[in-house]
Design a protein around this nucleic acid. Structure first.
Lengths: 254, 254
DNA sequence: CGGACATTTGACAAGCTTCAAGAGAAGTGG
DNA sequence: CCACTTCTCTTGAAGCTTGTCAAATGTCCG
């Protein structure tokens, strides 16, 4: 198997949630120590998945509930002839696998885009969380609604934007999400997607995605090299995509 | 203003949730009488909206939380030049407006497709529901995850299916949802969408939607007249759309 | 009958997909 | 250290699906 990419160092989950790197980033809502103890008890293990590996398979039953601690992943659905649609991207702090937790078959797959570290929660005990810590239940619902709003955005993009607008949207959206969790360095963010991923996320063909990316890059709107993305003309990208920045907000973290 | 369509008689919400027609349909999970009392207390009023009216406006702040009691509605997003994408359709029993309830601006609009009756819940008290009745919180999360899975489906459809497959998918999907809540009569269901709605839901142009619908209808796959839809060849439609029926399941109803 | 609106059809244009093939980049093994 | 493989990116050309424009037909309703 391949080594862990230096671009995405495997950041092991600390043994205690009290030392969670994500919580210290300031992007997530603070939580009382006793609630943190409960979360830590609810977390039964941690797990690493290599880039390209499956966190959840399509049609898998009784999948686990995770929080993505480090790395990128994506949710997708596919058709029998191989056509694939990426539904949304998962970044550190995102809750993964909620839909399956309701005792149903997973209708989508989740794949690691980079090496990932996950905090794994107790199976089949989501109801206990709601009962014992309604606040966490409320947070989980917030996360669910928040993820849905990403899918909403992607549906508007795929259904009604043209290729140029779609690519601009994707770049802006991902950059902004990464910025919020503090992953911008020197004006660039790690960008592990290849063009096939972008095509699958935007509902475009690989070739057309390439040509569109190329055009935006030649226009000086962005730069994509060494696996890192730099936005060179945010204003133009935002105008093309009709992208509206929403005010940042602390997100719950399970 | 126009009269209430005979196709969609205004079914007033009964004064007490104990007499709720939806609950008696058998499609929803039964609830203990005391929980029903709580729900009834949480419901502060009922409201009617005429076809074409807005339940929630795009960019509206502090919208209400509703349950759709009768009628159809849809969630949508639009771009400044008028392009519009319908995100999903809302049918009786669906919870409406959860995303805004988290104190944020609504990033999508919700419009009544037919005359609708709504049960309106207390504003800003979602957290109370979670605290006092964790089970209802759990149900709300289930509904949220369930709605997301509809949007997931629509994203796959819009991103990766061709026009014929998209139309077939829409017909199958809506028919099946209506069937589950007992709205099939004589092998037909009420179908209040016009072709512009279908186009906006599928990410197609109006003209192309028309031609595709026409083709399927001439092939004898469906029949659409007098505002009612009949599926004449479910097997063929399912094959075209690659539509998989999921086993029915009782849904929570707030 | 007239007006507003939805559906239908044809013709044409365009955006996007598919096919094909070359150029880079990166890892593997002799 | 260099061929060899594999994967990704890039580019051109041709074709098809879908969009746009325009106008006719149908329907409902006052």
């Amino acid at each position: 198997m391949n080594d862990l990419s230096p671009q995405f160092p495997l950041q092991a989950c600390p043994p205690s949630c009290h030392n969670c790197r994500l919580r210290k980033s300031g992007a997530f809502t603070p939580v009382k120590p006793e609630v943190l103890d409960f979360i830590e008890g609810f977390r039964v293990s941690t797990m690493g998945v290599e880039a390209g590996g499956a966190l959840v398979r399509e049609n898998q039953t009784n999948a686990q509930l995770f929080t993505l601690y480090s790395g990128w992943a994506f949710r997708y659905k596919s058709l029998s002839d191989g056509r694939r649609q990426i539904l949304n991207f998962l970044l550190p702090g995102d809750l993964v696998g909620l839909q399956q937790e309701f005792g149903e078959v997973s209708t989508h797959g989740i794949e690691a885009l980079t090496d990932c570290m996950l905090c794994v929660f107790q199976n089949d005990s989501l109801w206990d969380v709601f009962r014992e810590h309604p606040r966490l239940g409320y947070d989980i619902t917030w996360l669910s609604a928040h993820e849905e709003s990403h899918v909403d955005d992607n549906l508007l993009t795929t259904g009604r934007r043209n290729a140029t607008e779609r690519v601009a949207m994707l770049l802006m959206h991902l950059y902004q999400r990464l910025e919020r969790i503090g992953l911008v360095e020197d004006g660039t963010v790690a960008f592990p997607l290849n063009q096939q991923h972008i095509a699958d996320a935007l509902g475009l063909s690989l070739v057309h995605t390439n040509k569109t990316l190329r055009r935006l890059s030649l226009l000086g709107l962005h730069e994509l090299k060494n696996g890192r993305l730099r936005l060179l003309n945010t204003r133009a990208l935002a105008r093309i995509a009709e992208y509206y920045d929403t005010p940042p907000r602390l997100m719950p973290l399970l």
